[in-house]
């Protein structure tokens, strides 16, 4: 699933001049973004900056008022189902079926997505996502937020999609789990998956992302290579850009 080969010059994600308004409020005002295979891009911005709106547009849950959004060459506005075939997604709040175990949840979502996962394969994916083996068979209703997040990661990993969308992926994870998660995402990028993450977590951004876009007023106001800055400098730069924008 999602393993089709793209033409060399075709980005995995291409957003051009995307505008989205909710009544009088403009959430995105001409967002441009290009993401190639194997890249990890972090959208950094305060609450209401348009991070989740961007993800919803890519998933086709919202339709842009103008501009284009293409996933692996497919117009996400015109063919959201087709575009989503190439996408894996981990929402900020992963919800699972409380009556099913972690393994059952993972196998259920995989089956609906057209994948056949054996119990062993499901367990391996949950291990890769960082879920403790003793939790595999427990009902998801008893899971903590972090445990649900890990099952969500496993659901996304199972699909081996070309684009991985992460909405505040490390919120609710303990430091050790967050570190594991960073490693998992880097591994996915190493396999050629393009990753777009919306986050506040500057520390993880620096650890995971190859590019950072500071989103403010519905557009990317600065793009940064986080490896050229330490955490403090990255935080100062981020706050300065937001302050400039507010002024």
């Amino acid at each position: 699933m999602g393993a089709s080969v793209l033409p060399a010059d075709e980005p995995v994600l291409a957003i051009g001049g995307a505008v989205k308004r909710f009544g009088a409020r403009t959430a995105l005002s001409g967002l441009d973004l290009r993401l190639d295979a194997g890249e990890v891009f972090a959208l950094l911005g305060p609450n209401g900056a348009g991070k989740t709106t961007t993800i919803n547009l890519i998933l086709g849950f919202l339709r842009a008022d103008s501009g284009t959004i293409r996933v692996c060459g497919i117009d996400a506005g015109a063919d959201p189902v087709g575009a989503r075939r190439h996408v894996a997604y981990i929402p900020e709040q992963v919800a699972l079926y409380p009556g099913l175990s972690g393994v059952e949840n993972l196998r259920y979502f995989a089956t609906l997505a057209g994948l056949e996962l054996s119990k062993d394969e499901a367990r391996a994916l949950l291990t890769e996502a960082g879920l403790a083996p003793e939790a595999y068979g427990r009902k998801a209703g008893a899971y903590s937020k972090g445990m649900r997040q890990k099952v969500g990661i496993a659901v996304a990993l199972a699909r081996r999609a070309q684009l991985l969308l992460l909405d505040e992926p490390t919120s609710g994870l303990d430091p050790s789990a967050a570190a594991d998660f960073s490693a998992t995402i880097r591994a996915a990028a190493g396999r050629g998956t393009a990753v777009l993450m919306a986050t506040h977590d500057l520390y993880r951004v620096r650890e995971m992302a190859g590019r950072v876009g500071v989103l403010s007023g519905g557009r990317i106001v600065e793009e940064i290579d986080p490896r050229t800055l330490d955490h403090v400098a990255l935080e100062r730069l981020y706050i300065d850009r937001l302050a400039e924008r507010a002024a």
Binding site: A95, L96, L112, L165
Partner: peptide, 21 residues
């Protein structure tokens, strides 16, 4: 309401087959 629909649709599960199933 629970949020499982967001996880399902966001992970390539097509609405048509989901409804039919």
């Amino acid at each position: 309401e629970r949020g499982t629909l967001r996880l399902a649709l966001g992970n390539g599960i097509a609405p048509g087959p989901l409804f039919a199933g």
